[in-house]
């Protein structure tokens, strides 16, 4: 097998092990082999251990799969943003999604817990659309303007959210926990809907893999090589924004995964998107799942996962940056 396929395969194996490990960890410690046996016998229609089965299928699995999905969504969106904007600081929230979702959620917490998710999604999309409209120059998104427009829209929506939280008697702990992000509310419904959204929108992004490498050369170069940059930007940014807004409305604002996963991917598998895209997705899924396992196994109670993602992701990136300096392999 070619080395790059081997890396992808290893990341996939790592993800499977990560999933089994995460399922076995929790207040009730389920031994590793019991996890596999319970899952195996469940599908054989023969309960291996009823308690284990309930814990695994109704408590841990939804959360584990949601972590995998959200990690994948954030990573793919982060990579798209970094590629289209040709900016290593690109992250999925660059177009104002986070602040939009925060404002929507804050309004939601004022009204009823049941409208937090839909309002967060609606306001995240509103922020994205405002950013998109501002950034159109001659009918095409200008990356330079979009970065600044995203920052402006983010600040505007954050200010509104802060004002609302400050002025009204909002459930502060609820809002704060939501803002820091967490998978504690995971259920099969979330997993189902996010899977559907990913199944629709990921192919729209993956379709443009041949164009992404060319987009890195700059809009003008990409155009002269025959890329319809307008179409690539519109479809990929819109798809990734929708699926990210959807994920954010479910789990809050989980930082760093979207920024760091593509960078880790580049360091281990190189720049070509046909490898980098799947690698980033697997890395994002692995990172968020591991972070969430740590976050929920804290003895003093659950920590917001956003804190852990930074604690796990930052040293990993720093290590890769330093390693590159000492053992430069031109890659």
């Amino acid at each position: 097998m070619k080395p790059k396929f081997l890396i992808l395969f290893s990341l996939l194996i790592l993800l499977i092990l990560n999933i089994l490990f995460s399922i076995s960890i929790g207040p009730v410690r389920i031994p590793f082999d019991s996890v596999t046996s319970t899952i195996f016998y469940y599908f054989m229609g023969d309960p291996y251990n009823r308690i284990y089965m309930l814990i695994i299928f109704y408590i841990r699995m939804p959360r584990v799969f949601l972590a995998v999905l959200v990690g994948a969504v954030l990573a793919i969106s982060g990579l798209i943003t970094q590629t289209i904007f040709r900016n290593p600081l690109g992250d999925p929230y660059l177009t104002g999604i986070a602040s939009g979702a925060a404002l929507g959620a804050s309004i939601g917490f004022l009204i009823s817990p049941f409208v937090v998710e839909p309002l967060a999604f609606a306001f995240a999309m509103l922020a994205v659309f405002i950013t998109f409209i501002i950034s159109r120059v001659d009918g095409e998104f200008s990356p330079e303007i979009m970065i600044l427009a995203g920052i402006a829209v983010s600040f505007l929506f954050s200010a509104l959210a802060s004002y609302l939280i400050y002025l009204k008697e909002v459930n502060l702990r609820g809002v704060l926990f939501w803002l820091l992000g967490g998978l504690y509310g995971a259920n099969w419904n979330d997993v189902f809907y996010l899977t559907i959204a990913s199944l629709i929108l990921f192919p729209l992004i993956l379709y443009f893999v041949p164009e992404f490498d060319l987009m890195l050369m700059g809009d003008e170069q990409a155009k002269s090589m025959g890329v319809d940059t307008k179409r690539v930007k519109l479809i990929t940014l819109l798809s990734s924004s929708i699926v990210t807004s959807f994920a954010v409305s479910m789990v809050g604002i989980i930082g760093f995964i979207g920024l760091v996963s593509p960078h880790i991917g580049r360091k281990i598998i190189g720049e070509s998107h046909r490898f980098l895209l799947p690698a980033s997705i697997l890395i994002g899924a692995n990172l968020l799942l591991a972070s969430d396992t740590i976050a929920r196994s804290n003895p003093g109670g659950e920590i917001p996962v956003g804190i852990i993602t930074s604690f796990v992701g930052a040293p990993l990136l720093i290590y890769l940056l330093i390693r590159r300096r000492f053992f430069d392999r031109g890659n």
Partner: peptide, 14 residues
């Protein structure tokens, strides 16, 4: 970006 010369020239074939 870390593309090889070969990859880079192949992009012209897009």
């Amino acid at each position: 970006y870390t593309f090889t010369v070969e990859e880079f020239v192949k992009m012209g074939k897009y």
